[in-house]
């Protein structure tokens, strides 16, 4: 179980993380969505034990992570900027990881390199960016980590690679009960693959929870009423937007879909249909509420 307890981190005067708390059960995929500069990388680094939080702590199965080698053995951070040992090939990195990580599996590394068609004896610095990302993933997975943190990893992969990655991820999750945190902007992918999600904005974790729960916080309906105003029926609920096209009203409400439908049905509408919102739309709505760029 991964737990972040009120983590605060500042760089000089800039507050990168502001009392971020999160609890994750094993074997889940969590999506960390955030605007640019929201603090995603910083948060992941604190969870990995790379950075020390100014206050608060990160825990893996009850053990604090910072300066804890046994915990760090089980955590793997795939950075948004590929960083390898200078001038190393994948073969060199194999030796490097074998030297430091007890769980490193050279055979698995070779297997994955073949699967992702990565040459083992060429300098990684000569690879393209996308290929470097693949190399990162391969090195990460060959360590059999309990916790995998991917920082904008999806975003750098082409669609074919993305599929391969998802397949491998699925396998590993089943076999090893690995927990994954995916941080990034690619919300469509995240919606499909993540069990739970959290929104990070300017260092604060605005909301987090199961995908369903998050998606159900808003709903969008199209309604035509013969008489009466839809708004009146939705008294007490927060109506985010209300567009009219002739007699058709398109309402976005911060409420459960069932509740909204029930209220509107009471007025016997001529037409009523709910439009499911995607994660991307929900995210944008949340951000707009926070006043982040319209």
């Amino acid at each position: 179980m991964i737990k972040a307890e009120s983590i605060t981190k500042c760089f000089g005067r800039k507050v990168a993380l502001d009392r971020v708390s999160l609890t994750l059960d094993d074997g889940h995929i969590f999506g960390l969505v955030g605007t640019n500069g929201a603090g995603k990388s910083t948060f992941l680094r604190v969870l990995t034990g790379i950075l020390k939080a100014d206050s608060g702590n990160a825990f893996l199965n009850g053990q604090g992570v910072y300066e804890n080698p046994s915990a760090k053995q089980q955590i793997c951070y795939v950075s948004d900027e590929p960083a390898f040992v200078t001038g190393a090939t994948l073969s060199d990195m194999d030796h490097f990881q074998a030297a430091y990580y007890a769980a490193h599996d050279s055979a698995r590394l070779r297997e994955l390199c073949e699967f992702f068609s990565l040459p083992m004896n060429e300098r990684i610095s000569s690879f393209s960016k996308g290929t470097q990302k693949r190399a990162q993933i391969v090195l990460a997975l060959s360590r059999h980590p309990r916790l995998l943190l991917c920082d904008e990893t999806f975003d750098g992969l082409d669609p074919v690679m993305r599929e391969s990655f998802k397949r491998v991820l699925g396998e590993v999750m089943l076999d090893e009960q690995m927990t994954t945190i995916l941080a990034g902007h690619s919300l469509q992918e995240m919606e499909n693959i993540c069990d739970s999600v959290g929104f990070l904005h300017e260092g604060k974790l605005l909301t987090s929870g199961d995908m369903d729960h998050i998606l159900s916080r808003f709903c969008k309906v199209q309604v035509v009423l013969e008489n009466g105003e839809p708004n009146a029926l939705l008294n007490g609920l927060t109506v985010i937007s209300d567009r009219r096209q002739g007699r058709l009203s398109i309402l976005t409400v911060r409420a459960d879909e069932a509740e909204v439908q029930e209220r509107l049905k009471a007025a016997s509408p001529q037409y009523l249909e709910a439009i499911p919102l995607s994660l991307e739309e929900v995210f944008i709505l949340e951000m707009e509420e926070q006043g982040y760029a319209k």
Partner: peptide, 15 residues
Amino acid sequence: SVRSLSTELGINPNT
């Protein structure tokens, strides 16, 4: 199996 389906479809086994 959960495994083969997740591999085939490329989705989260939890799903």
